[in-house]
Design a binder for these strands. Structure first.
Length: 570
RNA sequence: GUCCCCAUCGUCUAGAGGCCUAGGACUCGGCCCUUUCAAGGCCGUAACACGGGUUCGAAUCCCGUUGGGGACGCCA
């Protein structure tokens, strides 16, 4: 036995990583780092009907972006590799090993071929359900081993484990000892009709072959664990250390994975179809029309993650975030996502000097402090508001230049028109000093990177052309039209002073406007609000100095002129 | 239906028999700051599911009830 601790994350490639999977990966990663071992990534692509290579790429991207780097696994952007020679890491490339294990079991009469058809089994299950009892596969008492083995060569069959008639105790690092009686471990399938191994067989064979020492996984696997232990015993393997982590749920207590998004997608898609006949054709082109129709007709059915993604893209839907990619798109920092996710079920148990609990920590902190002893046992509901608060805080704590760099990267990926052209090209981004003012100004006003340029976002005014924003009627009425002197009048007067401000930077601008107010015997608000409306269309904007500096002198004058021309009643 | 797991403010949680008049964070409400919007500061509302034990003493241990969740696939 090697002393190296090895944990693993073993997703099946059916779409982008969702946050539950991301947390499982994160905990596995953290445990391996903490123990000085390896975190291994294995792709469980044994379901021929549902796999896709695109999904593999997506999951690798998601993990890499989060900073969950695997020491062993598929190569991707400089991450991964096979230092111990335990690969390949795609189960579809390991079929010979599974067959060898199965042959060994059949040889010892610990597994056997079964020839029931799926329809026959389905009928038995229905009957069991009608009689309100649990379905259990019963092996044929009048079993002729030689005859069965002979039939294997020519007839479709599955291979089942001859399950032991004993109680199996799972020793779980989080839940303690959990006992499963013999009636709960039936002769489950090891190899499917199509020759591919089932999850159970593949997992057990691979974990052994790859030297996995700690299996940390979701609670839905707890009931599978006695099966895996039974299989390990049959194959003469030892068992890894098991730990089942609690589930992440939606606010309503349902499973987080997809239901939320699926529900929203159905509602939005139906509305889109009703509004615009061409949308349906677009959706049909994006995914299997039959699947789409079935899904629309049955509110209990769910689309696969990749189907949802395709539909979202095709129709331009705005769906709630459940995948890592969703949160990346929404403008969260990866360290914010991992920080929040880690806190769902784990916490460092430290108090800060001011008496608060430590809730903010880095990936390095996690790697240094993570332990199974501090993982909770109750399910956790995913609280978007708290994530948003974390994001707000993390963004505000970034140095201006860092914020700017992160924002640029986000824009390039998700809002290319902001990063590159814009209606008034490069107004903010081309001038380094102005760009830093933008960063400083947005930091405390944006909970996500996406918020800065959002349609009603606080930075929008600086990113659009001088003529491309509308004046809010109430703001015009309240701050420009009213009063004596009116806002319009003050605007005209202050315009002249603006020509003279030097340098055209926040402090000098503030000072000049303050001086103008003093000279004219009016309060700051009497001048600042009309200026805001003229420059941004709205009465809410960053501090006056920043607002003007962000636009630059020429744009400020142009916008004042436009406002006087277009917003003033004549 | 059967099996398994879980149970502290609305949410995430601290709490490993006396330190608990139950602490922190998010949300929500109020106040302060203020040229707007934010940010920031201060204050506040709010929980040990219920019933039995054990113990000098229980949020903490045991049993039951209730509630929630998961699993019962030739999916993983």
């Amino acid at each position: 036995m090697s002393a190296l601790a090895v944990t693993r994350f073993a997703p099946s490639p059916t779409g982008h990583l969702h946050v539950g999977g991301a947390r499982t990966a994160l905990f596995n990663w953290a445990l391996a780092q903490r123990l000085g071992g390896h975190f291994l990534l294995r792709i469980e692509d044994t379901d021929q009907a549902r796999n896709s290579r695109d999904a593999v790429r997506g999951i690798l991207d998601d993990l890499a972006w989060l900073g969950i780097h695997w020491q062993e696994g598929p190569q991707h952007d400089g991450v991964g590799g096979d230092p111990r020679g335990v690969g390949p890491f795609f189960q579809s490339e390991r079929l010979a090993r599974y067959d060898a294990a199965i042959a060994q079991l059949i040889e010892k009469d610990l597994a056997y071929p079964a020839f029931d058809t799926p329809d026959e089994l389905e009928a038995l299950r229905k009957r069991a359900s009608a009689e309100k009892r649990a379905f259990r596969y019963l092996r044929d008492a009048r079993w002729d081993r030689a005859a069965a083995l002979a039939r294997m060569a020519s007839e479709p069959h599955v291979v089942r484990l001859r399950a032991p008639d004993e109680t199996i105790v799972v020793s779980d690092q989080i839940l303690g000892e959990v006992a499963f009686g013999p009636e709960q471990i039936d002769d489950f399938v090891l190899r499917k009709r199509d020759g591919f191994p089932t999850y159970h067989l593949a997992v057990v064979v691979d974990d052994e072959a790859m030297g996995v020492t700690h299996v940390l996984r979701g609670p839905e696997h707890l009931n599978n664990t006695p099966k895996h232990i039974a299989l390990q015993r049959a194959l003469g393997y030892g068992s890894p250390i098991y730990a089942h982590i609690p589930l992440i749920q939606n606010a309503d207590g349902s499973k987080l994975s997809k239901r939320d998004k699926d529900k929203a997608a159905r509602a939005l898609a139906q509305r889109a179809f009703a509004d615009d006949a061409t949308q349906r054709a677009r959706a049909d082109a994006a995914l299997d029309p039959k699947r789409l129709a079935a899904w629309l007709g049955d509110t209990k059915s769910q689309l696969e993650t990749r189907e949802i993604d395709a539909l979202e893209r095709a129709l331009g839907l705005d769906l709630p975030s459940v995948t890592v990619e969703d949160f990346r798109h929404a403008g969260y920092l990866p360290e914010t996502v991992t920080n929040y996710l880690a806190l769902l079920g784990w916490n460092p148990g430290e108090k800060l000097a001011d008496g608060r609990d430590r809730e903010q920590f880095s990936m390095d902190d996690l790697a240094a402090k993570f332990s199974l002893a501090r993982v909770g046992r109750g399910n956790a509901k995913f609280d978007r508001a708290k994530l948003l608060a974390f994001s707000q805080e993390a963004l505000a704590a970034l140095p201006d230049a860092e914020w700017l760099a992160r924002w640029r990267v986000w824009c390039e990926r998700y809002a290319a028109e902001v990063a590159t052209s814009g209606a008034d090209p490069q107004r903010v981004l081309a001038d380094p000093a102005r760009a830093l003012v933008f960063a400083a100004s947005m930091k405390s006003r944006c909970a996500t990177l996406a918020a800065a340029s959002a349609p009603n976002g606080p930075g929008r005014f600086a990113l659009v052309a001088d003529g491309a924003f509308a004046y809010e009627p109430q703001a015009v009425a309240k701050f420009l039209a009213k009063g004596e002197p009116s806002g319009f009048a003050l605007l005209e007067r202050v315009r002249g002073g603006i020509e003279a401000i030097a340098p055209f930077a926040p402090a000098a601008i503030e000072a000049a406007v303050a001086a103008f107010c003093a000279a004219n015997g009016v309060g700051m608000g009497k001048v600042a609000q009309p200026l805001r409306v003229a420059l941004t269309g709205s009465a809410a904007s960053p501090p006056l100095g920043e607002t003007l500096a962000l636009l630059g002198r020429a744009a400020v004058l142009a916008r004042i002129d436009r406002c006087l021309r277009e917003a003033r009643p004549h």
